[in-house]
Design a protein around this nucleic acid. Structure first.
Lengths: 161, 161
DNA sequence: CATGATTGTTAAGTCAAGTAACAATCATGC
DNA sequence: GCATGATTGTTACTTGACTTAACAATCATG
């Protein structure tokens, strides 16, 4: 894609159109969607340098923080199906970032635990993601970011009644 | 899905886990993603009462605001491919919300224009979506919402270097 | 006016996420 | 005890939204 805006700079009838999505900008949901699209693209680009996609890295972080987590618990935390975490956990295990451990008392479940390499990987990638985010918020004050966080969490909490 | 949190309330080893995604909450991108997921679900639920999905309603709003818009321009504004807008425009046209008009001087393109029913539909649904959003932000001040908007737009602008 | 680009369109492919079914295992009631 | 039902991890199949590729019609440019 070349210049996405050039074709929208002016309407075909000569009117000055400015930004085409003026009305949509009035919706907070639209602002969130656009920002999400942009920031996820940036983060995805950061993560793929280490062979991660978003869900996989999130899983690693969760497993690091909650040792002996179950795959079903992981699915709930990631808001995806159990069948989906199998592939993610397979990948993390194949890369020796986590291990599936037998748990006494329930031979169905695995206790997921990060390896030393997994912990180091998390720290390293986490730092890179933080750097990416810090770049995106340069020019904004800490207070503004904190308020944005509050608003976003509030919206998330209010949704689903 | 029953209670998504109950299975996460306590780790299997008895430790108090609280929220499982404590570390991820540190990422602004994570907060945006969760809020986006929640708000889009709400809006989708509001839109489907009138037979819309997000892209379709966005297209209607854009066409209302920019009469004689081209499908290629619409694709750029929606950040999707031209082939995708065909289906969207087909649907809007079949429901008599917009019309494809011949344009003098270029027999390849259509000038998209909303019908009276389309304009009324936009107003009606727009009001419903606003009500949905207002419900999500009850308890927040206007200033807080305005700052959140500023932060989100800033992030969107900073992304893509 | 000939060559290349653009527009709308259709068909095919992709890719992530969800659904369904299954064996192994656990829990519960009787 | 044990039979019935639920849960866990897993695999295969489906789905749905989006992209890519190709094409005819039309425009632009030298």
């Amino acid at each position: 894609m070349q210049d996405k805006n050039s074709s929208l700079a002016h309407g075909i009838n000569g009117e000055d159109t400015g930004e085409a999505d003026e009305s949509l900008r009035g919706f907070l949901g639209y602002n969130i969607k656009r920002a999400n699209l942009a920031v996820q693209a940036e983060i995805r680009s950061t993560l793929e340098k280490s062979g991660f996609r978003t869900a996989g890295f999130s899983a690693l972080v969760l497993i690091c923080d909650m040792p002996d987590m179950t795959q079903t618990q992981l699915a709930a935390a990631l808001s995806i199906e159990r069948s989906g975490v199998v592939l993610i956990v397979d990948d993390l295990e194949n890369r020796d970032l986590i291990t599936r451990n037998k748990v006494e008392g329930d031979r169905r479940t695995y206790a997921l635990r990060a390896t030393l390499a997994g912990l180091r990987m998390r720290d390293k990638v986490m730092e890179q993601v933080c750097a990416t985010e810090n770049r995106l918020v340069t020019g904004l004050s800490e207070d503004e970011i904190a308020i944005a966080r509050k608003v976003l969490n509030h919206i998330e909490k209010m949704a689903g009644k």
